[in-house]
């Protein structure tokens, strides 16, 4: 798994290597760079700040949501985040979740084109414009958190919709939809969201 080194350096912030790690750590890092190819470390994010945040939010949602237990075959089976259709994150999402565990579960990212693949995922991200390709039944799928971007997505019964408030990424939650999907959303999540109850 050569990409671990990438993850380790990421939170230090966009390629800034500060000497706080001490000499030995720095040597190790430099060694890692030599072996695993430093060019990726210094590569500027290819996508916008907005989608970086959205990718992080998608990942973070996993921490605040309880899926029905039957959605997992075991205690350690991974949480699957699916990107339906267009992928606005480019490689960012995979990069973000790589190697991370949430409550003991790894996170898998899949890119799906068919609605038929939706039930196998735990979170489905639908980029703006892609919601048109889904029918109503898909939104009501039990045990799947649907995350979208457009008003239409919300109207059609999507559970979480990203919004921009004062250029900050925020989200609204359709509690009715989430209840219908059998998901338990943490109060902490709810307190940050604009909560709506609207049945489609």
């Amino acid at each position: 798994m050569p990409k671990r080194a990438q993850v380790a350096t990421e939170p230090a912030g966009g390629g800034e290597l500060r000497p706080v790690f001490g000499r030995r750590s720095m040597l190790l890092v430099l060694l890692g760079l030599l072996i695993f190819g430093g060019h990726t470390v210094f590569a500027a994010p290819a996508i916008s700040k907005e989608y970086q945040l959205k990718a992080a939010f998608l990942y973070n949602f996993t921490k605040f949501i309880d899926w029905p237990p039957q959605r997992f075959s075991s205690e350690t089976s991974p949480i699957v985040i699916a990107v339906f259709g267009k992928n606005p994150f480019e490689g960012e999402l995979e990069k973000l979740v790589n190697g991370r565990l949430v409550n003991g579960r790894a996170i898998n990212v899949r890119f799906i084109e068919s609605a038929a693949d939706i039930p196998a995922a735990h979170i489905v991200f639908v980029a703006a414009g892609e919601e048109a390709r889904l029918d109503a039944s898909t939104f009501g799928e039990a045990g799947v958190l649907t995350v979208g971007e457009s008003a239409e997505f919300a109207d059609r019964g999507g559970i979480i919709r990203f919004t921009l408030v004062d250029e900050k990424v925020r989200f609204e939650i359709n509690q009715a939809s989430s209840e219908k999907a059998g998901l338990k959303l943490s109060g902490q999540l709810l307190k940050l969201a604009t909560v709506i109850r609207k049945a489609p």
Binding site: A56, F57, V169, R170, Q188, L189, L192
Partner: peptide, 14 residues
């Protein structure tokens, strides 16, 4: 604990 979500979702107001 209470600020976990705020941090997660970058909500400084919260």
């Amino acid at each position: 604990f209470n600020s976990a979500s705020s941090l997660s979702f970058r909500d400084d107001d919260s």
